[in-house]
Simulated assay, not measured.
Amino acid sequence: MSTRKPLRIGYIPEHFSTPLHFASTHHNLSATLIPEPLGTGALTTRLKLPIEDDKAFDVAIGLTEGFVADLGRSKAGGKDAGFGLVGTYVESPLCWAISTGAERDEIKSVQDLKGGKVGVSRIGSGSYVMSYVLADSQGWLEQGQAPFGIEVIGDFAALRKSVRKEKDAKSTDFFMWEHFTTKHFWDNGSIKRIGEIYTPWPSWMIAARDPGDDERLDELFTKLDEGVKHYGKNREEAVQYISTDMHYSKEDAGEWMKTVRFAAETKGVDVKVVEETVKVLRKAGVLDGKAGDGADMIAIERKP
């Protein structure tokens, strides 16, 4: 029996965390689950903290683009990245909604964003990376530079305030966040949706600071796979959890569940997926040609 402490797992406290919750509550996952509302950029920061730091994570479950962007920049800088990709969590793409303040009459469509200012949670976060992907999709990139200013705002609540130009809040023209997390605030009229963009890659992965920690990681993969199975077989329980603990409506929870596909086997990462992600991020100017290849970022490769 191992005497090592339970894994400290960082996760984003949104509806995607439901199978992780089930792994803990129904399948005895031996881990401390720690919410990180600032997103993937904050997850990677905490993965790289000294292990003795109380805020450090052993494992993080976050957005593919945020992990790959951070790993690519670390490889480009010639430094140890501090973590590696070990697993696949969500195989379906993520729908990023593009939102602005409800009273911003001057912004009616994505075309009105060129030359404006985008709010992001952190440099290197998914919201930051996807702003470049959006610019690339619109043909706006020039030498890797996005055609709008980047303003670091913080969490989701702060981003909403920024587009509403609330007093004592930094001002931005738009921000990007997951569709169903944002929908409640379109429905209540505080912000408005002006577009969307999907990730061209599977949306969530698992990263670890010590990929050689076989005993604890193997338990994580086993229990997380059981959590995914529980989620698939107990849809009503999942809707109840999402609509109470996560504060989504039951209707939105049900609609989201039609769009998401969790990995049946979470251990390992497909090198082709990461290589394609790197290609897109290079084209968008998020990574340069010195960034490491996909194989350099993967600590546990998914077997065919």
Rank of each mutant, 00 (worst) to 15 (best):
D136A: 09
S137E: 11
L141I: 11
L141M: 14
E142V: 01
G144R: 06
G144V: 06
Q145R: 15
Q145D: 12
A146K: 12
A146P: 14
P147W: 15
F148N: 12
E151S: 13
V152P: 12
V152F: 11
V152R: 15
I153T: 13
D155V: 01
F156K: 11
A158Q: 14
A158S: 14
L159C: 15
K161E: 15
R164D: 05
R164K: 05
R164N: 08
R164I: 06
E166N: 10
E166Q: 13
E166I: 00
A169L: 01
A169Y: 11
A169F: 09
K170Q: 08
T172Q: 11
T172H: 12
D173I: 09
H179F: 14
F180I: 04
F180D: 08
H184Q: 13
H184D: 09
F185V: 06
F185T: 07
W186D: 14
D187A: 11
S190M: 05
K192M: 07
K192Q: 07
R193Y: 13
I194T: 11
I194F: 10
G195F: 11
G195N: 10
I197S: 09
I197V: 05
T199C: 02
W201K: 04
P202A: 04
P202R: 00
W204K: 07
M205V: 06
M205C: 03
M205G: 00
A207L: 02
P211N: 04
G212S: 08
D214I: 01
R216A: 08
L217N: 00
D218S: 06
D218C: 02
E219S: 04
E219M: 05
F221M: 03
T222F: 09
T222S: 11
L224G: 04
E226A: 10
E226W: 01
G227L: 02
G232F: 04
G232R: 13
R235S: 08
E236Q: 04
E236Y: 01
E237D: 01
E237S: 00
E237R: 01
E237H: 00
A238V: 03
A238D: 01
A238G: 01
Q240H: 06
Q240P: 00
Y241L: 13
I242P: 00
S243Q: 08
S243T: 09
S243C: 05
T244R: 12
T244H: 10
T244A: 10
T244E: 09
D245T: 13
D245K: 15
M246Q: 15
M246V: 15
H247S: 12
S249C: 01
K250D: 09
E251V: 10
E251G: 09
D252R: 02
M257A: 06
T259Q: 15
T259F: 07
V260Q: 05
V260M: 10
R261G: 09
F262I: 04
F262E: 03
A263S: 08
A263P: 02
A264F: 02
